[in-house]
Amino acid sequence: MSDEVMKAPAIAAINLTKVYGSGNTEVIALNDVSLTVGRREIVALLGPSGAGKSTLLTAVGLINPPTSGRIEIGGRAVLEGERALVDLRKFRRENLGFVFQKANLIPFLSAVENVQVAMEINDVRPRQARKRAMDLLEYLGVSDRTGNLPDALSGGQQQRVAVARALANNPMLILADEPTAALDSFRGRQVMELFRKVAHEHDAGVIVVTHDQRSLDVFDRIVEMEDGRLRPHKEAQVAGH
């Protein structure tokens, strides 16, 4: 990787607008939003329900293209409005990691296979993928349940498998939408700290949508959304060092 690319931010969203529906049912979910997250930076995205947080996250996650605006990931322009400038699916599997409120594991694959599959679809050899999947699960503290189907795992264990899956391909950008909502506060904080560690140790940019006020100290920066607009978080400056 060239220095140029290394220096580029993990994600740069520029003047994003997203309009759902039309006419009477029109909803402006993103209203000229710009957001840049550097590599080795973990950002919390706060805001009331319906503010547009998920819309922003899925837009930069390349699964819900904005109506207009531009998205650059790792210094590379990938979306210009709804128009894709790269193969989005290829870009997702190589560069992005997702965690949602629900783990969304594949029910017919065991814990380790759920992590493994993310690497195999990214052309990692099965054996290598399996080994890394095992390592990740151990790292996340679920090494004793690797052979179990998701149904046999607790909510917290499922979510940690989902986190392992998101980390599997060493993504440049990790997007997490209320990842700890289903976890107790101890586990929740553990996951947040893990994200911070991944951001800082693996040069990734991380955006986490959260309502958990107690974990905010984990983040490098906090931004807040309201009515489709972004604004800096007031207490953020205080919470910092």
Binding site: R92, I106, P107, A118, I121, R165
Partner: peptide, 15 residues
Amino acid sequence: DKIHDIAMLKLIGAR
């Protein structure tokens, strides 16, 4: 029955 899983596979980038 597994359309949700298929969508998830697509989301994480499966061809």
